[in-house]
Amino acid sequence: MSFAQLIGDWHALAVLFVAGVVPNQIWRMLGLWFGGGIDEGSELLVWVRAVATAILAGVIAQIVVEPPGALASVPDALRYGAVGAGLVVFLLTRRSIFAGVVAGEVFMLAGKWWLG
């Protein structure tokens, strides 16, 4: 990997600023300036939080359903199975994030090894 590849181009960094940095900092700075007058339990915030959670859920689904890079080499059933196995262990271990992640990974690696 060359040095230039590690740096990338300025265009991608500009996109990061416009689509990533600004949309996040707006909310933090609004919180800094106008904090205090907002009711945390207000109905609008409940809806906003639900939509934000569902957007993140969609991205999680996108990575599993239309996987990038090396993850695409894992068969569909194995990817879905790994998430399912992780979820079962997560629920059985009283919501241990660590146990869920390990179980999902082990399922995927074992499946890959078994399929050859």
């Binding site: 090396a70 994030i97 990974e105």
Partner: peptide
């Protein structure tokens, strides 16, 4: 692939 799978798993369970 195992490293990439970390992202959906950790976000799913932490959320």
């Amino acid at each position: 692939a195992a490293i990439l799978l970390l992202t959906p798993l950790s976000f799913l369970f932490s959320t």
